[in-house]
Amino acid sequence: MDQPLLELRNVSREFKVGGGLGLFSRRIIKAVDAVSFSMPSKPWITALIGESGSGKTTIARMILGLLPPTSGEILYRGRKVSEWIKKNKMEYYREVQPIFQDPYSIYNPFYRVDRVLEIAIKKFKLASSREEARGLIIKAMEDIGLRPEDLLGRYPHQLSGGERQRFMLTRILLIKPRLIVADEPISMIDVSLRAIFLDHLLSFKEKHGISCLYISHDLHTASYLADNIVILCYGRIVEEGPKNHVIEDPLHPYTKLLISSIPIPDPKRRWIDKIDLRSVESLRKFRMEKGCVFSARCPYVMEKCLSETPQLKSISLERKVACHLY
């Protein structure tokens, strides 16, 4: 087997919370708990799916070297991310680029939007002259379907959320990294433009060989985009497998609940059964020391689930699940 592009080995990240007033004694929350998965070296899209508080963004930040893991290691092309950052920072970011949820926050409101692209060109030495840089920018914008004459020279607030996010795609296209870490990239884009954004990510993969870790709460778009899907629940991976298998035949009760909760955009196919509103969420705020993270909401909960944490196990060539039912 070839060397994976990205590999997480038993990665955990803890945060200390509370303290102060003594309402809670200082406690430790495991935002990410022993997470392992990898992405192959060939152009590939992995969707990392989880609800709010599942640790998705923490994982993204660790891969981007913005936050060190408490334990475990993250390897990019066989080398630790922390090492990349220490020794070859520019080289790392030349290859691994983020797309964030809020495309507004990365622009400096006092500068014209062009600067975001000019800085990228300068930093990564993509062009040797101003003219060449200009040409690259215009070419990249046109490839993304943006009109340079309409957008260049404008200020960030003059662009819509969708335009700003697509402007970020232009930046990606200039840099041509090997891996994009996209954290909820479409949640601020209008519905009618989301499809266009996703198609760009697909064509990056197909035309330019750019892989993507697509982090989202949305299984719809994941099923459209991804090659394989990783399901996170309260900081732990509960299921992993090729897109079609996970969507059509989910194994973990949590994945089943997620998939059955996606509203189907067809009034003829409405939910027939009602879900028990009490099982939707649990009041428990902190994670248990042991046992399955989903046990409080699981309809199939057994005694074993409360005492023993199920490990992620391969149950077929490509599929993994962490559940005592299997």
Partner: peptide, 21 residues
């Protein structure tokens, strides 16, 4: 356009509406 832009599981092609609001 709005209906064809809804991503759905099992849907192969999703079309957006070009242009801006």
């Amino acid at each position: 356009g709005l209906i064809s832009a809804i991503p759905a599981i099992g849907k192969k092609y999703v079309k957006g509406i070009p242009g801006l609001a």
